[in-house]
Amino acid sequence: MVIDFTTAAILAIACWALGSLLDLFGRKSAALKLPAFLLSIGGTFIMAAYIAIYWSYLGRPPLRTLGETRLWYATLIPLAGFLVEYRWKIAWLKYYCMGLAGFFLVINLLHPEVFDKTLMPALQSPWFIPHVVVYLVGYVLLAASSVAALHNVSLQLRHKKNDAGETAAHYLALLGFVLLTFGLIFGALWAKEAWGHYWTWDPKETWAFLSWLAYLGYLHAFRYKIDRSKLQWYLALSFIVLLVCWFGVNYLPSAQNSVHTYTQS
């Protein structure tokens, strides 16, 4: 490969770190804003290019193993931060997003995976990419929502009001929920084609359903006019259910017969 993962990851993390620092100092001087932004987005571009190269090297979409999904996550989550800044003029979210992206790259650096080019027949389907990509983007938005909610909680503890932050957390959760729904339904339609039934209560399915219910609950509580600031805790913690669904399921006693355990270790 033209570029190896260690180089790409370190370059991306350096870009995000320098970009964030420049941006923090740039609060006073507008001249630093543009280079800060270019550096930050440059880190994401490096990861996007790395994914493209890795994809062509593997000859299959790098969406099969957990490590591979972390690559996408690290690439996309800073974009969510930039979009929120552009859309709601909230600058702080992107620091968390870049930090989280760097964290996921560090996990991949510490636990290198076996590069395996094979793709089992069940995964060779036109549903593979839409199902996983919709989920990835959904997780990215919900992670950003959770981070925003956590920030809002910390402000509340210091008795500061933060309407814009609560709005951002809400709409990120709303958009994330829509994508979770699509991911769940795409998965059901794919399962019908591959395994014969759209729903079998496979542990991964059950946990995907649980995380969907968590956000369904949030949206109804919000609709019932429960004080939005009280729901920030809920939003911040809901992401834990998603994390169990994403990484934790393999370690649960129920996972013995799951069809979603692709990684051999």
Binding site: W201, F209, L210, L213, A214, V249, L252, P253
Partner: peptide
């Protein structure tokens, strides 16, 4: 439903 699914999602079925 979430609590019952949680049981089904943690304990082997």
């Amino acid at each position: 439903i979430a609590v019952l699914s949680f049981i089904g999602g943690v304990l082997p079925q």
